[in-house]
């Protein structure tokens, strides 16, 4: 597990072995002031080589850059599932941009892990 100091955004990366997955939890808000933290978090999560679960249940605000990272993760063959509930402005952003149906979203970690590829 890896913790980062909060700067409006707190990041937690957990590697799960059964099933094989990396859970990236984002708590707080993303923005221009913590874009490097967010970028590093996705880089670290990607470096695990594991299918990715991004936990957005603790997200207060997600900006366009977060959506960009999610879209990038979606295009990789490793697999991506969102863990919700995704609420507020980021839920609106997903709907408004027409990508809410693109992502698989589950409400519990067990269901999210179950939906990842083997």
């Amino acid at each position: 597990m890896q913790e980062r100091p909060p700067d409006g955004l707190s990041v937690r990366i957990t590697e799960v072995t059964r099933p094989n997955a990396c859970v990236l939890a984002l708590l707080g808000s993303t923005g221009a002031w913590n874009v490097t933290v967010l970028e590093q978090a996705f880089r670290d999560a990607g470096a695990t080589g594991r299918p990715l679960v991004v936990d957005l249940s603790g997200l207060d605000f997600g900006d366009e850059v977060l959506l960009g990272f999610l879209l990038h993760a979606y295009t990789t063959p490793r697999g991506l599932v969102l863990l919700g509930p995704v609420t507020g402005s980021f839920a609106r952003r997903l709907y408004r941009t027409g990508v809410d149906e693109l992502f698989k979203t589950q409400q519990t970690l067990a269901l999210a892990l179950a939906q990842l590829p083997e």
Binding site: S29, G31, W33, F61, E64, S89
Partner: peptide, 21 residues
């Protein structure tokens, strides 16, 4: 979206204000 997601500096000591949505 800068016009509908405006936020005060989160590092500011000023009281929290909601997003200008």
């Amino acid at each position: 979206d800068g016009a509908c997601e405006s936020r005060p500096d989160p590092r500011s000591p000023l009281p929290h204000r909601p997003i200008f949505d």
